[in-house]
Nucleic acid binder design. Structure first.
Length: 815
DNA sequence: GAGTTTGAAACT
DNA sequence: CAGTTTCAAACTC
């Protein structure tokens, strides 16, 4: 029989099978050639349902047989994955709604989809299936015939592997980054490792898959290389996470096509953050490994030089490298850009992703820097002293210091680490070098484990505590705080050191720029041991900039801090949870797709405003840049981000509208004036904005209302890193508008996903949208392409947004 | 910078 | 759970 025909039939059958619960199209296809003829699909079905002897004999039966083996595997995986998930979630005090954010949700979805038994799976696009198959194949046999699918499959597998690795890493991270050698080590990850990985870290896989689907495929090489290379499990894990994050970023930004962008991004990253350098190193390591495996790897990452685009950046980058002794540099040296091979390409892609992320940071940094400079030398000095310098020299004035600081937060956990690093250049670097593992872990952990999986403070704490030796306790519940205050993060040694080291210890007044990046409190009576204290609430230690009195929120009082924290948590487990939850997160948690409202984020508990009309920062919802939800008990809600009743603020209320508008404008003005700051903020928010890829349109900042001035949002956006990693990546792209959300974790989620963007995008789900990112700019909803800031039509744009926004679903606080 | 307003957090 | 107090940020002048 003609192979094609057979294949077609087989495919049909397979699809049906899939419907019934059998997946593995790939396998089927692959075998298709071998398999003979299939009867009518119906027959097949019947056969499947009730195997007939004849059937057994038929190729179809063979096919089924083949499938069957797979099934078990899948089932095994799934359960594991589920367990894993549950496991992850369990530890965290509260699942961080935001944490998981996109990744998680995706993961869940995918996961479900992947389940063979589910019909949905069949319906899923080939990509998903492929991925699944890839997984299976990888698990069962990497050898299975992929021919039919060709590159796709292979890619998928690769992605799977990567995902697996990522998963593992994540898992390891979850476990506090234990060193299980298993994480990276296994050179043979693909084979058996995969299954294990898949099982354990399934959750992560989805993300990876997504990423891959988008185009990041080549993880394999890297992965392998990593495995081989890194004996260090933790570090590797971190790396992986980073990788993943990067990938995410890539996805988000993703334009593999834009080498220039990549280069830019990369360059900056390296410069800006030591942390970045670490990542790079890791990446490089991977690349190296890959090289060994695949032949020279391109270490494109390192040297953007390959890319013509930004020479300047490249130079800087080079400088940075030079400056930094870090392995990354060496790696850089290694890599010269060859990356022509697929493997190399893949690697490069990853790098690119990273670079992009870096870019974002970088971009932010420079801007920020300028701001700082503008504001005063003081800030600069500070940065220089602390941060900057680290790599200081390395970094050109522009990028480094502040950018790192402020920006970091955006990334989330990563940022934390980064932030720390950024804060103290020394520290960062130091850690990066020595404890690169640690930092990485932390960062990665924060990014990955925290948000995605556990999200819980505990998990974070664990990871943190372990990682830093110091101890910390880091209560990072909120990604934000972490990000923002990275420096201060309790438990984070560096922070402490920094604080201690810095002569200034006591707070210098924040400069505008600084304020944004880090949180400062002004507590007088609470001793910074109550939630009144922003620092404490954010899970970070008070730092110099704080003007608090009798502050106990310092490393030296770690015990006290922890005890207090515990006490507060005992009272309210969610006390330290991010206040703003992204819908996505909630979705993932709840599983409610329907709940995905355009407005991606909601305040966890809702506000209780009575006089401010939810139009001022008194309102946590407004402050967080999210609309009020049914959970809010506010009176006269006029929240520009979304009213409690679900109505979008349209202009019906003249007053309200005007007020809102005013507020927005005001905020906008502030932003404009503080553009630099804003940018920094943006950086912080990893959210959607794809760093490298300049989106034509930016979202209107959700948070617009906030004037950066007043409060710099905590840089922590990042999150999410998380989470964040994705967001972080995204963040870059964001226009200055993004407001950092000071208190909320949103960092990633909320901001990133911005309601608006989604709305704007509409249902459009850009490929990226899946990731959430999406909307590049959080800002207002201005229609895509519109510059809402400038446009006179702000209102109109805003209105559009509002209208488009559906009523906010009530946030489900996380359980 | 001081004072006021506001609403969350804490307390009862 | 509701009411009150405390607190610190946000805001105003």
């Amino acid at each position: 029989m003609s192979t094609t025909k057979e294949r077609e039939e087989e495919e049909k059958v397979s699809s049906e099978n899939v419907d019934e619960g059998n997946k593995c199209e790939v396998n089927v296809k692959g075998k298709g050639a071998a398999v003979v003829v299939m009867d009518t699909p119906e027959r097949n079905k019947n056969q499947i349902a009730t195997p007939i002897s004849k059937f057994e004999e038929s190729p179809f039966s063979n096919f089924l047989n083949n499938l069957s083996p797979i099934k078990p595997v899948k089932s095994a995986h799934f359960p594991q994955s589920l367990n894993t998930l549950s496991f992850a979630s369990v530890p965290s005090v509260f699942t961080s709604p935001h944490v998981s954010s996109i990744r998680e949700s995706r993961f869940l979805r995918r996961h479900l989809l992947s389940d063979p038994s589910k019909p949905e799976f069949a319906s899923d696009n080939s990509v998903k299936v492929d991925t699944d198959e890839g997984m299976l194949d990888a698990v069962n046999n990497s050898n299975k015939p992929k021919e039919s699918f060709g590159s796709e499959i292979s890619v998928v597998e690769a992605s799977h592997e990567c995902s697996k690795l990522a998963v593992e890493l994540a898992r390891s991270l979850n476990y506090e980054c234990s060193d299980s050698p298993s994480t990276l080590p296994t050179g043979g990850i693909r084979g058996k490792s995969l299954s294990e990985f898949a099982g354990s870290s399934v959750t992560y896989v989805p993300l990876v898959q997504d990423i891959f689907g988008k185009g990041l495929l080549r993880c394999e090489v890297n992965m392998d290389g990593t495995n081989e290379i890194d004996p260090n499990k933790e570090p590797s894990g971190c790396e992986w996470e980073n990788m993943i994050c990067d990938a995410t970023d890539l996805l988000i930004f993703d334009s593999p096509g834009d080498p220039e962008a990549f280069t830019k991004a990369t360059g900056p990253n390296f410069r800006s953050f030591g942390f970045v350098s670490n990542e790079m190193q890791n990446m490089q390591d991977f690349s190296q490994v890959s090289t060994s495996e695949g032949g020279g790897d391109g270490s494109e990452s390192e040297k953007p030089s390959t890319q013509p685009g930004d020479e300047t950046q490249v130079k800087e980058y080079a400088e940075t490298q030079n400056m930094k002794p870090d392995s990354s540099l060496t790696n850089d040296g290694m890599g010269v850009g060859q990356s022509e091979k697929t493997d190399n390409e893949m690697v490069s892609t990853l790098y690119r992703g990273m670079r992009r992320r870096c870019l974002v940071f970088e971009m932010v940094g420079p801007r920020r820097k300028h701001l700082d400079e503008g504001s005063g030398s003081s800030s600069v000095q500070e940065t220089d002293g602390n941060l900057a310098c680290n790599e200081k020299q390395v970094l050109p004035p522009k990028a480094v210091n502040e950018s790192s600081r402020c920006i970091l937060p955006g990334i989330g956990l990563h940022l934390n680490a980064l932030a720390a690093s950024s804060k103290d250049g020394k520290v960062v670097k130091h850690e990066a070098n020595n404890a690169s593992g640690k930092q990485l872990l932390i960062a990665s952990a924060s990014a990955v484990s925290l948000h995605p999986i556990v999200t819980g403070q505990e998990s974070l704490n664990k990871s943190l505590a372990e990682t830093p030796g110091e101890g910390a306790i880091v209560p990072f519940e909120n990604s934000v705080p972490l990000m923002e205050d990275v420096c201060r993060v309790p438990g984070y040694v560096n922070n402490e050191e920094l604080n201690q080291t810095s002569p200034k210890k006591k707070r210098r007044r924040l400069e505008p720029g600084e304020g944004e990046s880090c949180k400062r409190c002004n507590c007088k009576k609470s001793k910074c041991l109550k939630l009144y204290c922003e620092c404490f609430a954010a899970g970070v230690y008070c730092v110099e900039p704080c003007a608090c009195q009798d502050c106990f929120n310092k490393p030296i009082h770690e015990d006290t801090v922890l005890a207090t924290r515990k006490q507060i948590e005992s009272r309210n487990p969610l006390a330290f949870a991010p206040k703003v939850i992204r819908s996505n997160d909630s979705l993932s948690e709840t599983g409610d797709d329907s709940s995905k409202t355009p407005a991606s984020a909601r305040h966890k508990r809702g506000c209780n405003c009575k006089k401010s009309g939810c139009l001022k920062k008194y309102c946590e919802c407004y402050q967080g840049g999210v609309g009020c939800s049914i959970n809010c008990r506010c009176e006269g809600c006029k929240n520009a981000f979304g009213r409690k009743d679900g109505s979008i603020f349209i202009g019906t209320d003249g007053d309200a509208e005007e007020e809102e508008t005013d507020a927005f404008e005001k905020s906008i003005v502030d932003r404009t004036s503080h553009k630099n700051l804003v940018q920094s903020d943006v950086e912080q928010n990893p959210d959607s904005a794809p760093p490298a890829t300049p989106l034509a349109f930016r979202r209107p900042p959700m948070q617009l209302p906030f004037s950066l001035k007043n409060k710099p949002p905590r840089s922590s956006f990042l999150s999410i890193g998380s989470s964040s990693g994705i967001f972080a990546c995204q963040g870059v792209g964001r226009p200055s508008f993004f407001q950092p959300q000071p208190k909320f974790e949103k960092p990633f989620q909320s901001i990133q996903e911005d309601e608006i963007p989604e709305i704007l995008q509409g249902t459009n789900t850009s490929p990226i949208s899946g990731i959430k990112t999406s909307s590049p700019s959080r800002k207002r909803v201005s229609p895509p392409h519109c510059d809402f800031a400038n446009s006179p039509g702000r209102r109109s744009s805003r209105k559009l947004i509002l209208q488009s926004i559906p009523s906010f679903p009530s946030l489900t606080p996380n359980p």
